[in-house]
Amino acid sequence: MQLEVEIARKAFTNAAGERHDVLVDLKFVLGAGEVGVFVGPSGCGKSTMLKIIAGLDQDYQGRVVRPADARIGMVFQEPRLLPWRSVEENVRLAAPRADDVALSALFTVLELNAHRSHFPGELSLGLARRVALARAFAVEPGFLILDEPLTSLDDALAMRLRDQIATLVDSQSVTTLLVTHDVDDAIRLGDRVFLLSSRPARILAELPIRTPRKARGEAEIAAIKAEIARRTNGDSANGDAL
């Protein structure tokens, strides 16, 4: 159940007809049940990478081997809910095999019980993001893809949601790929942190974190943060960043 990614090159042609490389020589392997977190400056091509890995974009050079027969659960950068279906229907449509007990537990963890019959248009962005998370977890995925699931939320809510994601990832033990530009999220959630350069994105460094998620103390987190800062600053000193 491991994920192998080897993207030799992904380019876009802009309106003026010029080709721009977005991803170059991106290569990594993620073990079964591992949480890999990608951190990089915004616009570096993280979402493009996730689209390729999710199988939504076939137009690239290289190869991606997804965990065999694994169901994919994905949280997009925007919630992408069906506005004409209720919260519960949105989740059930993606996960028709989910049983009522598991769904109830999921709705409880994500504090969505009061909103089951609401339509997405009636939800705040934070709630809609939680519904998107519920949908991704409800399919009991073998492979989970999270594209900046915590952006544009206030700190308190982001922190709660991050803990909820950690709880869910630990309880279901899925191979997870998380993309973020928040170093804090990366360190608290990841088993391995990949630092990406600015466009065209390549992997600058790979930092394994061996302490289990729950046991990570503030001191350790601060140390890893300093290490990441040191490495990314080196990058910008070379004139690569932004």
Binding site: L56, I72, F76, R135
Partner: peptide
Amino acid sequence: TTLDEMARVFAMPRWRAFRHVILP
């Protein structure tokens, strides 16, 4: 198209995607 992508990632069968994603 973003909803199309969602339906594809979650491997919705064609008919269900048509009925619940496209038709509405």
